[in-house]
């Protein structure tokens, strides 16, 4: 075992993804300790948990109860990232910490991250969502990241130093009651706060390596290819280290992400096999068992039923009339 720990956070209904992440790590980076922080009660299963799971209950984090009543499930999960980070740095022997969202899939050796922390002496590593302008033809735009944050909070890496602890204390404090998803008020869960990290704290590396944190928001700016050895490469020369399947559902395997309803996997034929494999692994990891669980903590909203065609038409028509009345000039 090396001195680094990788953790993820989820409610029980996302454990199938966390397991998939764990297995990808086991295959590509077997000497890292991997722990799942569970913002939930641990469900009873008729199979063994393949990885260690620590429930938030075990942390005895006093403010958690209040947070759980305040936040939606996603907000609550996000708000617990610094809580778990501090827990691991305090009670585990590990000195380097990597956080990855459950829907990340590690494809290559990630020792470079640790090298940057230990040898290059960075304390904090973040990855930007995008590193160049987005063209008008895309389904998403730069504006989205002005609201949601410059850096993706699905990945960060830390080394235990005074500076890092200061950052975690600050982040945890802000996420106690300002971790809502409420863009109109300058809040975007845990992620938008990261905008400040390179300004407020020292030794922050903004990692531009195109092989990190590939996801629907940056696929268009990176040239993905398969090399003769069957390895995925980004921008020729950079092995893809990890892919972030943000918004992917194994029930809709042809969509890159539910956030981009018009972008089909066909746009990136080279990725087809990767998506197939990921879908298979999710199903193998008890997707249908976990996805139905209602989380014990956080405010639960059942998924909305998709509207039928007639309702959609009525909806559209009504808005047209409302806007007409609003803008009619007298």
């Amino acid at each position: 075992m090396n001195s680094s720990l990788i953790y993820t956070i989820c409610s029980a209904n996302n454990l199938y993804q966390a397991f998939a992440l764990g297995f990808s790590l086991k295959k590509t980076n077997p000497d890292y300790r991997f722990v799942i922080g569970l913002i939930d009660k641990k469900p009873q299963t008729d199979f063994e948990y393949p990885f260690s799971v620590i429930s938030i209950d075990e942390l005895h984090h006093a403010p958690f109860r209040e947070m759980s009543e305040r936040y939606s499930i996603i907000e609550l999960n996000c708000a617990c990232k610094p809580v778990f980070a501090k827990y691991f740095l305090n009670y585990f022997p590990n000195t380097e910490l990597i956080y990855m969202d459950t829907d990340i899939w590690v494809m290559n050796n990630i020792d470079e991250i640790i090298t940057n922390l230990v040898e290059k002496d960075y304390d904090i590593i973040l990855t930007p969502h995008i590193t160049r302008p987005i063209g008008d033809q895309e389904e998403w735009s730069e504006k989205n990241f002005l609201n949601a944050g410059l850096y993706n909070a699905g990945f960060f890496a830390l080394k235990k130093t005074e500076n890092t602890i200061k950052m975690l204390d600050w982040w945890e404090n802000r996420l106690f009651d300002r971790g809502y998803l409420d863009y109109c008020k300058g809040m975007g869960a845990d992620q938008l706060w990261l905008n400040f990290v390179p300004l407020f704290f020292e030794k922050v590396l903004v990692e531009y390596n195109p092989g990190y944190n590939l996801a629907y928001w940056n696929l268009n700016e990176r040239e993905i290819s398969l090399n003769p050895a069957g390895q995925y490469m980004a921008d020729a020369g950079y092995p893809v280290k990890f892919f972030h399947f943000s918004g992917f559902s194994p029930e809709m395997p042809n969509l890159i992400s539910r956030h981009l309803p018009k972008t089909q996997i066909q746009r990136y034929p080279v990725l087809k096999e990767l998506f197939n494999e990921y879908q298979r692994v999710l199903l193998e990891n008890h997707y249908y068992f976990f996805k139905g669980i209602v989380p014990a903590y956080g405010i639960y909203t059942p998924p909305a039923k998709p509207k039928g065609l007639v309702s959609k038409l009525i909806d559209k028509g009504s808005w047209k009339v409302i806007n007409f009345i609003e803008n009619f000039e007298v």
């Binding site: 930007p128 995008i130 590193t131 160049r132 302008p133 730069e142 504006k143 989205n144 990241f145 002005l146 609201n147 410059l150 863009y183 109109c184 300058g186 905008n195 903004v206």
Partner: peptide, 23 residues
Amino acid sequence: DCRIDLCNGLFVDQHWINFVPLF
């Protein structure tokens, strides 16, 4: 898009400059 429309990420010329050190 030089509007003041916080809910949609817009604040005049200024908010855009967040991207400058990245781009």
